[in-house]
Design a protein around this nucleic acid. Structure first.
Length: 366
DNA sequence: CAGACGTGGAT
DNA sequence: TATCCAAGTCT
């Protein structure tokens, strides 16, 4: 179906007015709405990808305090920047943002590009972020189609396409191009998302409070809870992991920096390996891994914790050992022996923060 | 185009 | 407890 099909008989200007008036009155007071600094808008949009507003707020405030300007972020050390993102997830976002900000500093004199062609070429900047930053920071009428917008518009226009399909977003972008306010694209885009967050919720939409109820075809037909159509994915893969908190004779802890690409890229972790044959010879496999990969001869203790950590696409079932390092380990950029007090200086994923918590609990508890 | 890529909160 | 979700992008 083409976008024209959905737009027949739709009162575009009334819709824009009702939507924007509602946003002017009801918008939340959020830290990235205090000014229109393109850099801050950009940071907020990256943080907000697949992440709740309540989760982002404290990270955003601290991040801007630490890196107040694009220049400051561009000049910061990678380790420092990664540490600021610790716990937020989807860590490629910060790697890409850091690279992109450096690019803007060097290629554009520190000014965030105000056209879609240049801005969307930057790392980590896709169609949504392009529209969001350019419309909010510069008032440029580009669509910013996220999950909220697809949900809201699927209901208003009775769109039955599956929003989990990659191509469906383009249909919504085409619709937005037809209905976006040219006078205030910033408020139009934000209002669509705000409406999705506050009124047009996934479950139990508050249609009786909706400022654009009169424009909503799903409400008119009483099918708002059946939209949007979204197919669910199959169960995630289970992965068995054996991990170890290892001390040398000076009481220093062995930590390892993960590869620069893939899962939890560049984050630090306690030595661990995937276990091939579930439950059989965990200890043996871990010892062999530590010897071959890190050149570390170890005396493992008994497992002191088993943790389950759920990702969006897999599950780690972690068995955690303590142990002693026998002899010396050659330290590298990726492999360090650190004091317990220094652990907090390194960026760890939540799964390994939990390992450390369990270890400390064991040490102090008995 | 699917699948990879994190985490914590709501129902 | 299980499932779904939240302002997506990259490969």
């Amino acid at each position: 179906m083409k976008e024209q099909t959905f737009l027949e008989g739709f009162a575009v200007e009334d819709f824009q007015r009702d939507l924007i008036h509602w946003f002017e009155k009801e918008q939340r007071d959020l830290p990235w709405r205090k000014d229109n600094d393109p850099y801050k808008i950009w940071v907020s949009e990256i943080m907000l990808q697949q992440t709740k507003v309540d989760t982002v707020i404290p990270y955003f405030n601290k991040f801007i305090e630490q890196f107040p300007t694009l220049e400051a972020l561009a000049e910061a050390d990678e380790e420092e920047v990664l540490k600021a993102w610790e716990g937020l997830g989807y860590y490629s976002r910060i790697r890409n943002l850091h690279a992109a900000v450096k690019e803007v500093k060097e290629q554009y004199g520190g000014k965030v590009p105000d056209n879609p062609e240049q801005f969307s070429k930057l790392k980590g900047v896709g169609p949504y972020t392009t529209g969001a930053v350019l419309s909010i920071a510069y008032g440029i009428p580009e669509p910013a189609v996220d999950g909220n917008v697809m949900r809201v518009l699927s209901r208003i226009f009775l769109v039955w396409e599956d929003i989990s399909k990659t191509g469906t977003r383009k249909l919504f972008e085409a619709i937005v191009r037809k209905i976006i306010s040219k006078e205030n694209p910033s408020y139009f885009n934000q209002a669509l998302m705000e409406l999705g967050a506050l009124i047009c919720a996934p479950r139990n939409p508050a249609c009786l409070l909706c400022p654009v109820q009169a424009h909503c075809r799903a409400f008119h037909e009483g099918v708002q809870t059946e939209l949007p159509v979204k197919t669910k994915k199959a169960n995630v893969k289970q992965v068995a992991i054996a991990a170890a908190v290892l001390k040398d004779e000076h009481g220093k802890i062995l930590i390892h920096k993960r590869d620069g690409a893939g899962l939890l890229a560049n984050l630090w972790e306690f030595p661990n390996c995937e276990v091939i044959h579930s439950q059989e010879n965990l200890e043996r496999q871990l010892e062999k891994f530590l010897q071959e990969e890190y050149g570390a001869a170890v005396q493992l203790g008994n497992p002191f914790a088993t943790l389950e950590h759920v990702f969006s696409h897999l599950v780690w079932n972690i068995t955690v050992y303590d142990g002693k390092i026998i002899g010396d380990v050659a330290e590298t950029e990726q492999l360090k022996l650190v004091d317990e007090q220094e652990i907090g200086l390194y960026a760890f994923p939540v799964s390994h923060q939990r390992i450390w918590q369990e270890y400390k609990k064991k040490e102090t508890g008995g």
